[in-house]
Design a protein around this nucleic acid. Structure first.
Lengths: 142, 142
DNA sequence: ATTTGTCATGTTATAAGGTTACATATTGTG
DNA sequence: CACAATATGTAACCTTATAACATGACAAAT
């Protein structure tokens, strides 16, 4: 029998969540919530909230990251990765490509900074904007 | 007679710039561009653009920082500080207080991460969200 | 099988953040 | 003075995000 309504396809995700996840997985650069919305209109998604709610959940599950300096979202590339503690992102301003880096020394350094102040961090944002290797090469040709 | 138009008061700043700088300097927590606008209406500032233009310049001068995870702005606390390269921020979600930290080990680690990828960074965002020391103490009482 | 609780959905309207385009004024410099 | 460069003012607009409220789907317990 057909599982009506909530068809998940990706374990445990609801329809809207898997639509949003699919859009992000298929993208080569971060997508804004509204870009996702536009892309999913023909699949029946009509309102910003449907996208934002799905994004909230996906971020909570660690399947998607929000890039604060871009107000946009990317699918997590660390397949089944569990260590979602502290991730740094490099974001190419030319081609939009994003790389995720987890680095224990960086994590340690951030913890140290917090500790020195008696600050209890619950979330961290580390984003580097600039040019990726490929785009630097392309630029130097021009 | 009143100095019409560009009175700077803080070296080299135009009227709008020093109004915005004043608003941020007097605040104990980050202000959004629109909060600044509201606060400066009686001083004759009417449109968002006037605030954004001033903010752009102040950020460029290193007198103000933008907090990406908050879409808000703070006055730089490092008085005449020249080393505006890489700054980390701790942001208390309870009281709004922000601390600026410059740490050469952190800077080194970020450079290392970029170098490994051949990434050329032009701008960095490092923000820790959580509870400051005081607010932790207050919370543990409740 | 209805109740009840919980979570996801759908929709409208609106708040908050930020930019484009264009006209005007100021000011410093040759 | 004249001119370029920079700062200003204003309106309209676009993008990003949330509030408020009603509905639907399903599980577990009666």
């Amino acid at each position: 029998m057909a599982t009506h309504s909530h068809d998940t396809s990706l374990a445990g995700l609801t329809r809207n969540q898997s639509l949003v996840m699919g859009a992000l997985s298929g993208a080569s650069a971060p997508l804004s919530a509204y870009a996702i919305l536009d892309q999913l209109r023909e699949a029946g998604v009509r309102a910003p909230l449907q996208v934002y709610r799905a994004l909230d959940k996906l971020v909570e599950l660690g399947l998607v990251h929000r890039l604060e300096s871009l107000n946009a979202f990317v699918a997590c590339r660390h397949a089944g990765c569990e260590t979602h503690d502290i991730t740094a992102f490099t974001i190419c301003e030319q081609c939009g490509k994003v790389a995720e880096v987890t680095d224990s020394k960086l994590a340690g350094q951030l913890e140290e900074i917090a500790r020195r102040q008696g600050f209890r961090a619950t979330k961290s944002t580390v984003e580097l904007r600039g040019l990726c290797k490929q785009c630097q090469a392309a630029a130097s040709v021009a």
